[in-house]
Amino acid sequence: MKGFSVLLHKEWREQVRNFKLLWIPLVFIIFGIIEPVTNHFLPQIMKSVGNMPDGMDFPWPEFAPKEILVSLMGQYQSIGLLIIVLAFMGAISSERKNGTATLLYVRPISYASYFLSKWTMINILVLASVWVGFLAGWYYTAQLFGSIPAADVFAFLAAYSLWIIFVVSIVLALSAWLPTGGVAALGLFLTLIMAILDSVIGAYWTVTPWKISTYASYILMGSMDYPTFWKAAGLTVFLIILLVLFGSYMSGRNAAKTTV
């Protein structure tokens, strides 16, 4: 792990000075607040915009507090994943393309520590963003809809975090392997699109990383069949390890493609 802590420090400075440490958590918090607030006022909004005849009462469903967090997760599964993929698609590939990586690669670093320094810092940043987003959403849900037990929320967050780490690992492994454009296309397919496909056509299999977010919502609702979850979680951890190994290997192999 030669150079890991030095490279980690470099990654930290990068996230701070490129404002990613500021804007990404902010965006997740904003979504975390908007979701419960709009859901709370949706009936009123519909009534004032909707030109409904007097006396007719639109039967608006009553949301349970937990359902608000699940629908916030739905936001993160689309816009959130889009932001994660696009914000970090160039983490390795752009460094290679613009030549800034060259002066790192000619030093006696190990490519595993190079890859892992990025993997660690970006995971910390993204997980922190997702967590503060959900915590903000939880607080507003408690104010507007009713409280949710902390144990349920944290179990849900822990499970969802595993999915987020999987997403970050995919993006970084692709960035080590492909040019930035390819990372964006394949990255969005393997995260956002696959999660949708799996929920639409994946009724016959249960052990897949793309169902972890759905399982996280079952955990929140208290309806999760845990043996199934542990199998899927185990597979996800295994795939994350493979992605990290692949990413480290590809970082080294593609070092020759850096702009000199």
Partner: peptide
């Protein structure tokens, strides 16, 4: 390299220090 490229968000001393440590 012929056209050395640096991380624009690092200062000269930060970059050189990082290089030395690596």
């Amino acid at each position: 390299p012929q056209y050395p490229k640096f991380f624009p968000w690092l200062s000269a001393i930060e970059f050189t220090e990082m290089a030395a440590k690596l």
